[in-house]
Amino acid sequence: MFLQKILESYPISEDYLLEILLDIDKQKENHYISKEEITLISNHLGIKESHVCSVVSFYTLLSTNPRGKYIIQICKDVPCYLNDDFNVLKTVENELNIRVNDTTRNQKFTLEYTACIGCCDEAPAIRINNITYTNLTKDKVVNIISDYKEGKHD
């Protein structure tokens, strides 16, 4: 099982909790940590479920609710805003027909805000899973989303 593999790749020490959670999130198609996984992790590390829940709920990259296969993160901070002359968020919302914090019905996309992703010199920027897309124009955004829709990254 993939979880066991992740757990075994770290020493049994509670400070690896965040690393373990990030690995699980990455490997799971719907990017979330389930109750059962939380129980298994807490048993494995000898820590309380309440602690694991506390950690998962603190960090925005982690979630206890299933999300889309692709998590589209829109930067909402000033440097992107200053260079966003076509409204990245609206464009993505229109393309996917969902609002921020929603997941498409086919479970393929979740749209989220993110804090600055450090690409301000190439603003505006978005991040889809681990890939950052920068110097966006309206056409570029439409193309990127349609590539994902067509399964070019699957």
Binding site: D77, A115, C116, C120, D121
Partner: peptide, 11 residues
């Protein structure tokens, strides 16, 4: 943990 909006030097 460079997260201050507008900074990217550490990256």
């Amino acid at each position: 943990d460079e997260g201050e909006p507008g900074n990217f030097k550490d990256r």
